[in-house]
Design a protein around this nucleic acid. Structure first.
Lengths: 208, 208
DNA sequence: TATTTATTTGATTAATCAATCAATAATATC
DNA sequence: GATATTATTGATTGATTAATCAAATAAATA
């Protein structure tokens, strides 16, 4: 029966993995509710109903926790958007779905979104560079890269007119981000669906 | 010679006013260099070369200092942009100058801009609402209001086509904001002037 | 079952924070 | 020049922070 034993690593980390999940969930909730500045390990621990030291046991560091959480949040929203975009065929359709699903993600997971913002705006690298200034540097930002790719392909195929891809991509991301910042979950001047539709129309014309 | 005496208030507050200026300048520098999270009264005091208690003497509170600083920064950038916009006559010209000067302000006062971002993203009202979620609620945001007014006037005069004003305004602001976030002061993929020109072109087409 | 290994806690550390206060120093007023 | 007011400091308070550690508990392994 030896060959049936699950690999040691998986077995070892089963409890640990569940605990990490729990801590990360508590971190999201805390960040959403009180913001990065007031979020401390003890606040997160209290939210999770565990001791502070337990967080230190599972994460080497506060910044380790925040980094892992950030990666999870980015991956979550990226997957949500990319899977939907990849189901479309033409650049124009892809672009519309990109906008639509980017905004839809915010409506579906508002707390994830808030937590993501709090970390990006506040956490800094060991070299003290804020994450929000890092974004652009190639490698990392899958979403921005995909958006540019859609625009490039659209121009290549003649579906889109002439424009600067970097600027257009920034503008679209900016329009999406602006909504996610300014609008609390309820009672908004422009509801999510209207915003989404109108933004698509405008971008349609801009990419001409 | 009595009537020549300057009003008591001005006289009294002369030193105090200068000191407040100095503290606010030090706060800008500190926020720019180490970010909101790491900025403390003692760090600001050290930057200013004064004692921490002196800040408490001139400002009732940490949040009082941050609020006054925020107001100054908003007023500074608003004035910069609005004076330039008001020199133009047609909505189209106003819109172009709005974009141009918004971006130019960032290039001219990068540290002011960084400090503004740090406060907006981090400071919260006594009710714990982040400032960046407050923006939209009428009264306050002079800049956003002006932008919408330009767009409205342009539509009214038939210079612009049909689009949702709120969404278009958000998109333009988002495109501007995106630049100011992503791009550090040097070695950028798209330089400020190119970005400005290209954004104007795109918005020109979008507003049709 | 005995023993090792993984998980969890409570107590503690040293640092830092905002804010207060009494004691000076500087300035203005009379 | 005496007196009051304003400005400034250093020391101190109590709260909170991230991180460490020895001790206790739970789980896995042999």
């Amino acid at each position: 029966m030896n060959e049936n034993k699950p690999p040691v690593e998986e077995n070892q980390s089963f409890i640990a993995e569940a605990r990490r999940e729990q801590i990360i969930k508590a971190a999201i909730k805390t960040l959403d509710e009180i913001g990065y500045v007031k979020t401390s390990l003890s606040k997160i621990a209290k939210t999770a109903g565990i001791s502070t030291a337990l967080i230190s046991y599972h994460f080497s560091d506060k910044s380790d926790l925040m980094n892992q959480l950030l990666m999870k949040l980015i991956e979550s929203s990226s997957t949500y958007i990319l899977t939907r975009v990849q189901m479309e065929s033409t650049p124009r359709e892809k672009l519309h779905v990109f906008i639509e699903s980017s905004l839809a993600y915010q409506g579906t997971y508002p707390s994830h979104n808030a937590a993501l913002l709090e970390i990006i705006f506040n956490a800094r690298t060991p070299e003290n560079i804020p994450y929000y200034k890092l974004n652009d540097e190639e490698e990392d930002d899958v979403i921005l890269h995909e958006l540019r790719e859609i625009l490039r392909e659209g121009q290549e195929k003649g579906e889109f007119g002439a424009f600067n891809i970097h600027v257009m991509a920034n503008m679209i991301q900016g329009a999406i981000g602006e909504y996610m910042m300014v609008h609390p979950n309820h009672t908004q001047k422009v509801d999510l669906e209207t915003y989404s539709n109108e933004l698509i129309k405008i971008v349609q014309k801009a990419t001409g």
